[in-house]
Design a protein around this nucleic acid. Structure first.
Ligand SMILES: Nc1nc2c(ncn2[C@H]2C[C@H](O)[C@@H](COP(=O)(O)OP(=O)(O)OP(=O)(O)O)O2)c(=O)[nH]1
Ligand SMILES: [Mg+2]
Ligand SMILES: [Mg+2]
Ligand SMILES: [Zn+2]
Length: 570
DNA sequence: GCCGTTTTCGGCCCGACTGTTTTCAGTCG
């Protein structure tokens, strides 16, 4: 049975939307959203947790929600949802996605005009019925029309690897602006989340209003969504929204904390403040009117009795409860080598020597060339004869550069549908490192895929499993598999699991890395580079590793050369 | 609807910007 976590999470979000449109109690609605978030964050199959009776142990899931999940897993329905849908049209949920349309507007349009879906809304706008709604004026109408236009053309969330470089460029150009003392990137970008909704920028300046006005007049700005004394929102090219917040020096730390989020982490901190009879907001931590602290993030966390928490951990995934036993997170400088890359021999765009020089430039102590195997025909996979020739070439190049870097000869070998490996054992014995990856039959059942990966790990030559779930973020779902079984088997067979650092993959993903670390599995971070420039993608691997709570010792390619080379054989 | 060890009842984060409101609701961060 396929994992139903996402499906169930979205049902709870939908129930929350329906309840909100029908004017239910806001806290109850919040509970549904919290439950949905908790389910989205699960690394394990919700059905397995339900069967083990572990659902109610999850924070945010109580008796009532547990019952609903059980009902859904058994019958495919939740009666509470069915009842709600008899009252509230399902099509209204879509209307909430329009910027500027909230639950109140949707509810009045529904009750007073009979609007039940997107089509009905468009019609009521066209016929002029819509402007007859109470509190509705020409500006609001215009705004909603723009919002409607936006959701029809917008492609949704963007990938970290696309947006972060853009944000960093904007950051640099703003830093040069007069009157601006500091510019920091906040929000999901600072937390290095795999997908990004918008760019959040925090500015330290004294004359906020002036600065914001100046920024909204930049030529890159396509549309000004709002402009006030302390914050502004604009849209730039590619429909990227930029939210800008300006605060003075004494509030910079608290504002950065607020603006980094995530929202649930913020609420947790604010609740700690409340318990101490204080108030936390973006301007500082206050006892009545008196500011206790606010200049730095460290100061805020310290006053609340917490160590500073790395932004990558601020997801309300246990970082506050475990604040005093947080891992010492891996850093970019800890990486001693890149172990997954392609060359012209298969589908890469650079020569062996170019890739070697790229790795030397990164300061690595070792590297590994891993071109594709026979069955990856479209990717120029090497048949045994070509592999043998490639081995000679890589060894030769290795000799030339041996003073600067240890060049390992490996392969990214296909795992066949039944778990057999594309090269025979004798051939693999000639390689320093075999990463085995699935490139076909991605839609296999969870049972088959799990069995396939376990079988691959049983091969003594298979040192690591490449991009284990085969997802392409926003394009292709992860293949179904029993992650707990795979992680356990990786530990048992002493097989490494890859964290593929390409920002389209980031596979294993953060919550799976955390699960792997807890089970004692070892991770290999590889860029899967197809050219020199992509070697830079290691940064995304590090960010994701940190989001997965990984320490240096969890990652094999942090070991110094001599120690690492000893581990090449399982 | 969830949660808790000073609570099993009664809280649940807090603030900015906009528009049409003549005093603040709605939406969003
Ligand atoms: N306290 C509090 N902070 C919030 C709330 N909404 C947003 N924030 C803070 C935390 C967020 O990380 C930050 C930026 O808001 P965004 O809507 O841009 O969210 P974020 O960047 O986390 O995710 P995104 O990728 O943009 O969807 O503002 C809220 O309701 N309460
Ligand atoms: Mg954001
Ligand atoms: Mg934002
Ligand atoms: Zn691959």
């Amino acid at each position: 049975m396929a994992m139903r976590n996402k499906e169930i999470a979205s049902i709870f979000n939908e129930i929350a939307d329906l309840l909100e449109i029908s004017g239910e109690n806001a806290f109850r609605i919040n509970s549904y959203r919290n439950a949905a978030r908790a389910i989205e964050d699960l690394s394990e199959d919700i059905a397995a947790l339900q069967a083990a009776g572990k659902l109610s142990q999850i924070r945010g899931i109580g008796d009532r929600t547990e019952k609903k999940i059980e009902e859904y897993l058994q019958t495919g329905k939740i009666s509470a949802r069915e009842d709600l849908l008899k009252k509230v049209p399902h099509g209204l949920v879509t209307l909430l996605k329009i910027p500027g349309m909230g639950p109140k507007t949707v509810a009045t349009a529904w009750k007073q005009l009979g609007v039940e879906d997107l089509e009905g809304l468009v019609k009521s706008l066209r016929t002029g019925q819509f402007e007859k709604l109470p509190g509705m004026g020409p500006k609001k109408i215009e705004n909603i029309k723009k919002g409607l236009d936006f959701i029809t053309r917008s492609a949704g969330r963007k990938l970290l690897g696309i947006v972060l470089p853009i944000a960093e460029e904007i950051q640099e150009s703003l830093r040069k602006l007069e009157g601006i003392k500091k510019v920091e990137i906040g929000g999901s970008l600072r937390r290095r989340a795999e997908t990004i909704g918008d760019i959040d920028l925090l500015i330290e300046a004294n004359e906020g209003e002036k600065i914001l006005k100046k920024i909204t007049e930049f030529p890159q700005v396509r549309e000004v969504l709002s402009l006030g004394e302390t914050k502004a929102s604009v849209r730039i090219t590619d429909d990227i929204q930029v939210d800008i917040r300006v605060v003075p020096n004494e509030s910079f730390g608290s504002a950065l904390q607020y603006f980094t989020g995530n929202k649930d982490h913020n609420i947790q901190l604010r609740e700690i403040a409340i318990k101490k009879k204080w108030k936390l907001n973006e301007y500082g931590l206050f006892e009545d009117e008196r500011r206790l602290t606010g200049e730095t993030e460290e100061g805020i966390y310290a006053k609340l009795g917490l160590p500073w928490i790395a932004p990558e951990l601020r997801e309300n995934r246990g970082e506050i409860e475990n604040a005093n036993q947080l891992p010492k997170l891996i850093e970019q400088a800890d990486i001693k080598g890149d172990l997954h890359m392609h060359t012209l021999a298969s589908d890469g765009r650079c020569t062996i020597e170019e890739m070697i020089e790229g790795c030397i430039a990164k300061g690595y102590e070792y590297m590994c060339i891993t071109d594709h195997s026979t069955s990856s025909r479209v990717a120029g996979g090497l048949d045994p004869d070509r592999l043998k020739e490639h081995i000679r070439h890589v060894r030769q190049a290795g000799k030339k550069y041996h003073k600067d870097i240890a060049v390992l000869m490996g392969s990214e070998v296909d795992i066949h549908l039944d778990g057999r490996i594309d090269y025979d054992d004798a051939l693999m014995a000639e390689l320093d490192l075999v990463i085995a990856s699935v490139h076909s039959g991605l839609g296999q059942s969870s049972e088959k895929m799990t069995h396939r990966l376990l079988a691959a790990m049983d091969n003594p030559h298979v040192r690591a499993i490449g991009h284990p779930t085969c997802r392409l973020i926003g394009q292709r779902e992860a293949s179904e598999m029993d992650m707990a079984a795979i992680i356990n088997h990786a530990v048992e067979t002493n097989t490494w699991l890859e964290l593929n650092a390409h920002w389209m993959r980031l596979d294993l993903k953060d919550v799976h890395l955390k699960q792997a670390r807890e089970a004692g599995a070892k991770i290999l971070i590889g860029t899967d580079s197809h050219d020199i420039a992509s070697l830079d993608n290691m940064r995304y691997g590090i960010y994701t590793a940190r989001r997965g709570w990984l320490e240096t010792k969890d990652v094999v390619n942090t070991l110094p050369r001599n120690e690492f080379l000893k581990l090449l054989k399982k």
